[in-house]
Design a binder for these strands. Structure first.
Lengths: 235, 235
DNA sequence: ATGCCGCAAAGTGTCAACATTTAATTTGCA
DNA sequence: TGCAAATTAAATGTTGACACTTTGCGGCAT
């Protein structure tokens, strides 16, 4: 069966050269079950931009590429469907969820409610040391972006597993897809850094309501900013 | 719902007698695919209490009972897993998610953020007529409970499909499970009715921030109430 | 009697073949 | 030539059989 997958050359969008089979990828997590491996693989591809929003996922293609049967592929797809990362209707091809202006608006509205609450919870749950480290990381992250993600860190440490999973396993994947699709504007980055610092500062003071309010305002401002970009590019 | 639930006599452990196949249930939605039917069936059983929280779901049993193969059953289970309604680890039996005090707290915290936002959005999106009807329904629902569900109605009409699906397709199922497990206290009902009326009133005035604030306070009060019940029953 | 090792039963994971549906192509007719 | 119905191709849905893992049980040695 190993020889069979090597002869696949045409794939969805990125033609895999012979010999660079996905099975050999070093960062592929050796999960217990194949379905788990397929799930992780698709998630990686979504995050890395190999699967663009709106692109169709062919079960048999994906199965051949990963050198597994269609069963595990289908199960992974159903889990992604439950997470609303891919959209399907019976008998039609599955598509990575498309990110039009309406969908982006919905995601940001959801983030405003959820991350606001997560910020308040993190305020109460995190230790003094963790908060101090957080403030330090935010301050030093001002010049070197991408080394520290305040939003993800808050979600990870809010003490509410349901909120954490929803943000990290669903919404942040979609956000990364969106950022890849329409790159974030550099003008907003300085603003965001300042707002991040304010949020972290309020958290260190254990001022939950203030931190929540700041986080919500921060996300709403980002929403308005992308709405402006959107309006400028469409006509 | 009474007629449907009365028909459920045999659950997980009782072997299905021939002739009492679920295939013949009249209210079973004639979906296109079998997996869809299985999904709907399990959802109904969770909502009706036939599947209690923490109970084990056996694939082959469920497949036999529904007269389908294991494939569709597995696919439905994976979708439920993606929705976090059932929990699984590889090779071990799947369980309906258990609702301990910690899980309930998480669900209510999530509701506070999401329903607060949904209320604000519904304020802006609903028509005057709809809002008038909403207020009327809330007023008349004071004496006859269960005829109108304000929370669900707001979620359905908030204009954000992602929030709507999350609330209606996941959290409200879990809430119904929890209410069945530890019945809601009648003392809280009168209070809740009053708070519902305040929320609807704020919505009719198109006062989004007020309506959101009232909804969040309403949910937080319910959280405290169930926390008190919880503390009283455990020791 | 107790603890460990191996075995057997039950349940989940995977596969390849078959059935059904959608869509695309082709063919026939106006 | 253009449209529409039939046909074919490709993808998804479903199935039963087989493989692997977990777990509980029973025998054996200490």
């Amino acid at each position: 069966m190993s020889a069979a997958s090597a002869k696949i050359v045409s794939t969805l969008d990125a033609p895999a050269q012979p010999g660079t089979d996905d099975r050999d990828r070093p960062d592929a997590v050796a999960s217990n079950t194949l379905a788990e491996r397929v799930l992780q693989d698709v998630l990686d591809r979504i995050a890395s931009g190999a699967f663009q929003p709106g692109s169709v996922i062919n079960e048999v293609d994906l199965a051949r590429r990963l050198a597994v049967s269609r069963g595990p592929v289908r199960e992974a797809m159903r889990r992604l469907e439950g997470r609303k990362l891919i959209a399907r209707s019976p008998f039609t091809k599955a598509r990575v969820v498309s990110l039009g202006p309406a969908e982006i608006r919905e995601i940001f509205e959801m983030r405003e409610g959820l991350e606001g609450m997560a910020t308040r919870l993190a305020c109460a749950h995190m230790s003094d040391d963790s908060l101090r480290a957080l403030v330090g990381a935010v301050e030093s992250a001002g010049q070197a972006p991408n080394v520290f993600d305040l939003h993800r860190h808050i979600a990870e440490n809010c003490g509410n597993r349901r909120i954490r999973d929803l943000l990290c396993d669903e919404l942040y994947y979609l956000l990364r897809m969106y950022r890849r699709q329409s790159g974030d504007s550099p003008g907003r980055r300085a603003e965001a850094s300042e707002e991040h610092w304010q949020i972290a500062s309020a958290m260190q003071q254990r001022n939950g309501p203030l931190a929540e309010s700041l986080m919500r305002a921060h996300i709403r401002r980002a929403t308005e900013h992308l709405a402006a970009i959107d309006a400028a590019s469409s006509p």
